[in-house]
Design a protein around this nucleic acid. Structure first.
Lengths: 221, 221
DNA sequence: CATCAATACAAGATATCACTTGAATAGTTG
DNA sequence: CAACTATTCAAGTGATATCTTGTATTGATG
């Protein structure tokens, strides 16, 4: 009999998965990888950390079975191990959003105040898209749009949005979406479009949640 | 501007929820609380830790918003903050089961080998219950049965099972269930019943998962 | 109010974690 | 094969986590 019981060892192993997500930097990594695979260097830039540190975080995620990697030339691309990981990350966010008061404050600080702006739900968007009532903008970087996007969306990355804004209809409703509920792109886009007098709101989820919920997408196969 | 960015602080806060589940002992606590509320002392016994240590783990879970407590006399009862926490725990187990090879080995060590014994799925059980083909045993401690159980189940706690076994039909299929997929009670029960020549299998989920999936239960309101 | 039981809090030892820095490895390109 | 790029590995430091032991707090009870 080992010094730790079999039960303790089993639950330690189960908990190791949660522990891997229990670092803000690794959570950021998973949030980005939910959009598609990335090289170590790209991830390091996204989470504002050194490449060495990012590599070590990836090793932790890999050991916990949350990510897989493939080598291409002298780069290594990481991706989430399966859809269950994205669902796990969504479950973490759901509990944090409901249960950690601090999250609301910090979200406002990062995303900016959403003064009375209601987000659009997936259900509402789906209905209004079907009736052609809405212009849907994917404000993520263009490569992410190319990898997969909500059916009917138009790519409008933030840097290009200023130019695009002039050509948007002033009468129709505009909905912007990005990576997820805690992604800043859609909020920035909505603020910018509203400052120009356009009727813009953000979708309350991002592309990964939309896809996993089974709503229509256009994606590379 | 603080030394950490707003984005880092937000993801730290989100990750704090995962971190709270990232200890084997706290995972055990959540697994037990998924059955219903418990006092600190009861929890300490379940996870084989000192009361002081258990209390500190509960403080961590409480700060992360995963549990709530109520005082009754000089005891304090803890419970999961909401169903989302149970779903989060299920998501952790799902990823761990699929992705961490170690979990399979450790599970066998704790639960015992399941030599070729297929577990019964919730769908199959529901069908066969409806046709009256099966005897369903809840092998958790009796108070947990009283707090809520699968509709049609009969309480058969492990200590009482030996006595009960003689009265069980030898022709009909017997299904045992307990707290969850990594709970040892049902496995022990099935081994015991099969040793007596009975046709027994375990349900592949526990009561909490059955209830959250919306299958019929009998519970105190 | 004194005593007891259950829980929480505090202090301390050991281990683990996150990040830094510098070196090693694998693959590509001239 | 030398030079270069992307990644990994290793060592070191300060911070944090877990568990122990001892004490304080809170509510119940005689």
């Amino acid at each position: 009999m080992p010094s730790t019981t079999a039960k303790a060892a089993l639950f330690d192993a189960l908990a190791s998965v949660a522990q891997a997500l229990g670092s803000g930097r690794r959570a950021e990594i998973v949030d980005v990888l939910d959009q598609g695979e990335r090289s170590v260097e790209e991830l390091a830039a996204e989470i504002a950390q050194s490449v060495a540190n990012t590599s070590q975080h990836l090793r932790v995620l890999s050991r916990a079975g949350l990510v897989r990697s493939r080598r291409a030339g002298n780069r290594v691309f990481y991706r989430l191990a399966d859809d269950g990981v994205g669902e796990l990350w969504a479950a973490v966010r759901a509990v944090a959003t409901r249960r950690v008061a601090e999250v609301g404050v910090l979200a406002d600080e990062y995303l900016g105040e959403r003064g009375g702006m209601e987000a659009v739900s997936a259900e509402e968007l789906e209905e209004r898209l079907a009736r052609g009532e809405v212009v849907l903008l994917d404000v993520r970087p263009e490569p992410e749009f190319r990898a997969g996007h909500i059916a009917g969306a138009r790519s409008a990355p933030l840097p290009a949005l200023d130019e695009l804004a002039g050509g948007l209809p002033r009468r129709r409703a505009i909905v912007a979406y990005c990576r997820g509920p805690y992604c800043v792109f859609a909020d920035d886009a909505v603020r910018m479009l509203r400052a120009r007098g356009l009727n813009a709101r953000r979708l309350d989820v991002g592309y990964p949640e939309w896809r996993r919920a089974g709503w229509p997408v256009e994606a590379v196969t």
